[in-house]
Computed example of a mutant assay.
Amino acid sequence: MPIRDWLYEVLRGYGMSTPVAVRLKLPSKILQSRDPSAELSVLNDRMKPMLRLEVIDATLGCLHQATQGDWNARRAVVSYAQQLEGILREGDSAFTVSEDRSGLEHRIDETLHATYAKAVEAGAEKAQTAGDHLRAAFSNVYGLKPDPSAAYSRAIKAVEAIANPLFLPNAPEPTLGKVRSHLDQGRHKYEMAIADKTGAPANIDAVVAMISLLWHGQRDRHEGGPTTAPVTQEAAETAVHTAAVLVHWLSTGSIRKK
């Protein structure tokens, strides 16, 4: 009932029934009813158990899109999103409102989410695109309809946004693979901010290993190879969080020249 009431208020108050129905390609009879907002707010289908969630997700998405650039409207959207998040949290929902309030995401451990948020903040301070790519990767992997391939691709781009200008400032076509080679061949030139067991700055073996894991793990980057394979959900989740750690380390000087 709280979700139903929230949906009805938002759909009716912002005229979102039509864009939501169109986005979800719902039957036209819904919009032809006396009160489309009421129809959508109670819409359910035993054959499509995710339909209610899809309506909520589409409502957030359409509302986010419709209020871009309107700061007064955006404040109201924030308020509605907070109301919804409160309902979901109190109801122990497996879903949460996304950071940009444009849809739903699978809820993850709060500590893990805080680590990701710190990485986004640190990355954005160095390169805005790093934060943007990391946010997109997170949404792609934890969204209502996950896209593992897109999530993995954006995870790599997030690291490249920081690593390419840092390690390959003059390269005409820098890639994460070239960064990996640069660090692999120049291990003696760099060190970590953290100490090893002797108390000296640790070597960058862990960084090279993580970048290698991220670079080689994207098995759908090229077609036709003997090891080409679709990116799994588990691989994409691993890639996104590996990228978050790398973005944070690279942005905060955890890897430095000797």
Results as ranks from 00 to 15, higher is better:
47 M>V: 00
47 M>G: 06
50 M>K: 03
50 M>C: 03
52 R>S: 11
52 R>N: 07
53 L>R: 04
55 V>T: 01
57 D>Q: 00
58 A>I: 00
59 T>Q: 07
62 C>R: 06
62 C>T: 06
63 L>Y: 13
63 L>V: 01
65 Q>L: 14
66 A>K: 08
66 A>L: 09
67 T>K: 08
67 T>W: 12
69 G>R: 05
70 D>P: 09
71 W>M: 13
71 W>Y: 15
72 N>D: 15
73 A>P: 11
74 R>M: 15
74 R>F: 11
74 R>W: 15
75 R>M: 12
76 A>I: 07
77 V>T: 03
79 S>A: 07
79 S>Y: 14
80 Y>G: 06
80 Y>R: 08
82 Q>P: 04
82 Q>Y: 11
83 Q>Y: 05
83 Q>L: 10
84 L>K: 03
85 E>A: 12
86 G>K: 11
86 G>R: 10
86 G>L: 12
88 L>A: 04
89 R>D: 12
90 E>C: 11
90 E>Y: 08
91 G>M: 09
91 G>P: 05
92 D>W: 10
93 S>W: 01
93 S>K: 08
94 A>M: 13
94 A>C: 10
94 A>R: 15
94 A>L: 13
96 T>M: 11
96 T>L: 10
97 V>G: 08
97 V>H: 07
98 S>G: 10
100 D>A: 08
100 D>L: 06
101 R>G: 02
102 S>A: 15
103 G>F: 00
104 L>D: 05
104 L>A: 05
104 L>Q: 04
106 H>W: 11
106 H>Q: 14
106 H>A: 12
107 R>C: 03
107 R>F: 03
107 R>Y: 09
108 I>H: 05
113 H>G: 04
113 H>E: 11
113 H>C: 02
113 H>S: 04
114 A>C: 09
116 Y>R: 07
118 K>P: 01
118 K>V: 07
119 A>E: 03
119 A>P: 01
121 E>L: 11
124 A>T: 12
124 A>R: 10
126 K>P: 03
126 K>N: 10
129 T>D: 15
132 D>E: 15
134 L>F: 10
139 S>D: 14
139 S>I: 01
142 Y>H: 15
142 Y>E: 07
144 L>Y: 06
146 P>W: 00
146 P>H: 03
146 P>S: 09
146 P>Q: 04
147 D>N: 14
149 S>P: 02
150 A>F: 00
152 Y>V: 00
153 S>H: 10
153 S>W: 01
153 S>M: 06
153 S>Y: 04
